[in-house]
Design a protein around this nucleic acid. Structure first.
Lengths: 202, 202
DNA sequence: TCTCCACCCGACCGGTCGGTTTGTAAACCG
DNA sequence: CGGTTTACAAACCGACCGGTCGGGTGGAGA
C-alpha cells in the first residue's frame, strides 16, 4: 500500500480540527494527545502516526487557525470601498455566535500566554499581528491619498487600531455581562474614527 | 510548639513571592509545587504545610499580585489633579524595567487564559477590570463636572479607556521590536485624549 | 496468491507531579 | 521534665501523560 497523500490531508485536517475544538473547550494545556485522538476519531497510535510530537501538533493548530482568521478578515475588508469602512469592517470579531469567534478567543489567550515563554509561539503571534498591521496600513494610506484622512503616522496608527480592536474585544469576551456587543462595536467605531481625525456619524 | 502567627505571615508572603517569580518566569502551567518550594527556600512538605492545595496557592498569588497592581495605579492616579492627567497617569504600565511590569504581563496573559476556562479565575479578572473602571469613571465624572470633558457615557468610556490601555500594552509587551515605548505612550495619549473630546498638546 | 507496507490500534514504559505519610527537632505547657 | 503540638523535611504513592512498540489488517504489486 503506497502512501496516500489524499488520505493524509484528510486525516491531518480532521486532527487539526479536533485539536482546535478540544483546545478551545478545555484550554491548550489541559489537552491530552489521547483527547485529540478520540476527538478526531482515531486512537492514540493513529494520531501519533500523523503528528509524532504534541508540541508540533499544537503549534500547527495555532498557525492554521490564525491564518484562517486573518484570511477571513482580509476578505471582509476588501468588500468595503470606503477606507473608513475598511477600518471598521472587523466587527465580525464581536459576534458571540460565530463559531470561529467562540473558538478564537480561548485560543488567542492561550497563545499569548504561550508566546510569553516560548519564542516559537512568540513569532507566530508577532507575524499574525503584523499581517493585520500591513492590511490596516493599506486602508490608512488609501484614505490619506484620497484626502479623507490626515493620518501623520500610518504605521503607528495601524498598530494602534489593531491594538484597540484587541483590547476592546478582550473585555467584551471575558466579561460579557458588563461589556455588551453594542458597547464594543460603538467604542471601536468611536475610537478608530477619532484616531483618523474624523467624527462618527458623518 | 504553639502556632506562630508572625511566622505564618512571613512564610506565606515568602511563598507567594516565590510563586509569583516562578510563574512569571516559566508560565503558570509549567510551575510545580516543588519549583515554588525550592524558590521559597522550603521543601515540598514545608510548602504544603502552608498551602495544602496548588490551585488555591496559584489563585491566591493572582489575587495578591493584581490587587497590588491596582493599588499602585490608584496611588499614582491620585497624585494628579487634572482629570485628563489622571486618565493618562497609567503609563507606568509601559516601563520595561519596572519589576512589577516584567512580572505582570506574563501573569496577566496566563490569568486571562485561565479565566476562559475556570470561572474562579474569571471572577478574579472581572473584579480587577471593574476596579479600574470604577476608578476611571471617577476621573471622567470629575472632568465632566468641571466642564473640561463632554463625555456622554462615562461608564462605557471608562471601560473603553481601560481596554485601550490593555490592548496597546499587550502589543507593546509581546512585540517590543516593532512597538516602542514611545509608540505605546503616544497612542495611549492620543486615543484617550480624543475619546474624551479633546486634542493632545493643549 | 503471496508479500509487503501503509495505516491504525492499544498495551506498555519511563518519567513527572500533586498530595500523603512518616519522621524529627524544637518550642511551649503542665 | 515528659507530653504535646508546630514546623518543617524527605521518602513515598498513585495517577496521569507523552511517546514507543509490537501487532494486526487490508489493499497494491510481484
Amino acid at each position: 500500500m503506497p502512501p496516500n497523500p489524499t488520505l493524509e490531508k484528510i486525516r491531518k485536517s480532521q486532527i487539526l480540527d479536533a485539536a482546535l475544538r478540544t483546545m478551545a473547550a478545555r484550554g491548550a494545556n489541559g489537552v491530552t494527545m489521547e483527547d485529540v485522538a478520540t476527538a478526531s476519531g482515531l486512537s492514540k497510535g493513529g494520531l501519533v502516526h500523523y503528528f509524532p510530537s504534541k508540541a508540533e501538533l499544537f503549534k500547527e493548530t495555532f498557525r492554521e487557525f490564525f491564518n484562517r482568521i486573518f484570511l477571513r478578515g482580509q476578505e471582509t475588508m476588501n468588500q468595503c470601498a470606503d477606507p473608513l469602512d475598511k477600518l471598521l469592517s472587523f466587527t465580525w470579531i464581536l459576534e458571540r455566535d460565530d463559531p470561529d469567534i467562540k473558538v478564537g478567543y480561548p485560543l488567542l489567550f492561550d497563545g499569548m500566554s504561550l508566546a510569553t515563554h516560548d519564542p516559537e509561539y512568540g513569532s507566530i503571534f508577532r507575524d499574525w499581528f503584523n499581517n493585520w498591521v500591513v492590511m490596516l496600513k493599506l486602508a490608512l494610506n488609501e484614505g490619506n491619498e484620497s484626502g479623507r484622512f490626515a493620518v501623520a503616522d500610518p504605521d503607528g496608527t495601524a498598530r494602534a487600531i489593531s491594538a484597540i480592536y484587541q483590547g476592546i474585544a478582550t473585555r467584551w469576551f471575558l466579561d460579557p455581562e458588563t461589556h455588551s456587543t453594542a458597547w464594543a462595536k460603538g467604542f471601536v467605531r468611536l475610537s478608530v474614527t477619532r484616531l483618523v481625525g474624523l467624527e462618527p456619524d458623518e
